[in-house]
Computed example of a mutant assay.
Amino acid sequence: MFDIETLRTFLCIAETGSFSRAAERLCKTTATISYRIKLLEENTGVALFCRTTRSVSLTPAGYHLLAQAREWLGWIDGMPGELRQINDGIERQVNIVVNNLMYSPLAVSQLLAWLVGRYPFTQFHFSRQIYMGVWDTLLHDDFSLAIGVTGTEALSDTIAVEPLGEVQWLFVMSPTHPLNQPEVTLTEALLRRYPAVNIADSARRLTKRVAWRLPGQKEFLVPDIETKVAAHIAGVGIGFLPLPLCQPLIAQGQLVSRAIPAMRAASPLSLAWHTAHSGKVVEDIVGLFQQRRPEIHGFMTPFC
């Protein structure tokens, strides 16, 4: 009923809107084309086309079959390449989790463009997570590789780690914030009076981390680094930001940096991947980072 030639015939008629034009494109007679569709409609028990003396249009059932036929034929056409890829040890699906600090749409799109050009039959899924949520996703979900896990040591014997660099931090606030008085010493007691702005750790199974908050200090939790930056600029809170990210904003006068009694230590981030079931795609991504290739430069801006 749904052999490949019949589906291609149906698809051609739907796209051309004509039995005769479909026959010309497929190098068949109009009678052959009509007979195939007649058998298909008889076997399914539904009309797929509305026919008039001047035009052919799809019925609701025809529209449904059109969507399915395109998907089926696309899958069939791509299957030889997929089988060759699997036989060559290339993964069919690669899931990649990225630390919020290293994530950027441009960085992801550049890496994805390189990957798709090299592995056209592999499916890719990118996820953006925060703090221990990166480790959590790599360890407990079906993810092959993580860009920016915290630390330089693996949390499992089946994980390999490649250090990427350290994020340096600056304590910042809005120029209009009450604490922006150079003659005032920023003691912990004084800092505690004003809210800290932090990004919520996305870990679900591992212990969540708090970036910076003094005992008893009010905290505003936001979903990403972009919102945290905007909150600091708006003067609603204080806290730390990556040095490369806030330096331009300080130069523009949108933020100011101050020293506090306990400055935040640098945060090492690493590339991490499963060693047991990694294929050529993961190996290539690891190689890009180890060689600091241009395809991954967008991820490295927190360390610049």
Rank of each mutant, 00 (worst) to 15 (best):
E71V: 03
L112M: 09
L26A: 06
R70S: 05
N100E: 14
T32Q: 09
W114V: 02
T44F: 12
G78P: 00
L106T: 11
S104I: 05
Q85R: 05
T6P: 12
A61R: 03
V56Y: 01
E41W: 07
E42W: 02
C27K: 12
L48P: 07
P105V: 13
G81L: 12
I37D: 02
E42Y: 05
Q110H: 15
I37N: 02
G81D: 15
T59V: 09
T29M: 09
P105L: 11
I86Y: 07
L7R: 14
E82H: 08
E42I: 04
T29C: 07
V94Y: 03
E24H: 08
I86Q: 14
A69M: 07
T59I: 04
S109F: 01
Y63S: 14
G62I: 02
E24K: 13
T53F: 07
S20T: 11
Q68D: 08
I90K: 04
T122V: 13
Q85N: 06
R21A: 07
L83S: 09
K28A: 14
E5V: 11
I90G: 10
G62E: 04
L66G: 09
I33K: 02
F121W: 14
S34P: 01
L66N: 05
L7Q: 13
A22V: 09
L111A: 05
L73E: 06
T122P: 08
S57F: 03
R70K: 15
R21M: 11
P105K: 08
T44S: 09
P120A: 07
A113N: 12
S20D: 06
R70I: 00
T30F: 00
I37K: 00
V116T: 15
L11W: 06
E24F: 07
R51E: 09
T9W: 01
E71P: 00
S34N: 06
L115M: 15
